[in-house]
C-alpha cells in the first residue's frame, strides 16, 4: 500500500511538472548560444566549445565553482575531528588506562 501510494505520488509529480514545463517553456533568445557556437574558435582559440565557455565566456562560473569546493572542504575539516585531535585523544585514553590499571605515577616522567 505504501509502495502504491508513493508510486502514485511520484508519477503525479512527474506528470504535473512535465505538463507545466512543456506548456510554459520560456523561449530563450537564441542569439547568445548561436553566437558562441559560431565564434568560439576565433574568440578563444579553443577547439572544444565546452572549454571555451567554461574558461572564457563563463569564467565567473568556474571561479565560484572552485570556491564552492574549497568552502565545502573547509566546512568538512571544521566539523570532522582532525588527525591531530584524534591522536591527542588516543594518547589521553592510553594515559587514562595506565592510571586506571594502577601504574605507579612516579614511574611516569613528570610533566
Amino acid at each position: 500500500m505504501r509502495y502504491i501510494a508513493s508510486a502514485v505520488f511520484v508519477i503525479g509529480v512527474f506528470v504535473i511538472v512535465t505538463a507545466v514545463t512543456t506548456q510554459h517553456a520560456a523561449k530563450l533568445d537564441p542569439y547568445m548560444y548561436d553566437y558562441m557556437i559560431e565564434n568560439f574558435e576565433d574568440d578563444t582559440h579553443a577547439k572544444n566549445a565546452v572549454a571555451a565557455i567554461l574558461l572564457d565566456y563563463r569564467m565567473y562560473d568556474t571561479m565560484f565553482e572552485a570556491l564552492i569546493l574549497l568552502t565545502a572542504i573547509i566546512g568538512m575539516k571544521q566539523f570532522l575531528p582532525g588527525a591531530a585531535d584524534l591522536r591527542a585523544r588516543d594518547e589521553l585514553e592510553s594515559v587514562d588506562q595506565t592510571e586506571a590499571t594502577g601504574e605507579q605515577s612516579s614511574e611516569r616522567p613528570s610533566e
Binding site: T44, A51, L55, D56, T62, A66
Partner: peptide, 28 residues
C-alpha cells in the same frame, strides 16, 4: 597567448579539484 591561458587555467583547476576531492575522500 590564448592557448597558453586555457592550458594554464585547466592545470590550475585540475590541481585544485584533484587535491580538494582527494582531501575530502581521505578525511571521510
Amino acid at each position: 597567448f590564448r592557448s597558453l591561458y586555457l592550458t594554464t587555467m585547466d592545470v590550475l583547476i585540475g590541481v585544485q579539484v584533484g587535491f580538494g576531492l582527494g582531501v575530502a575522500v581521505l578525511r571521510f
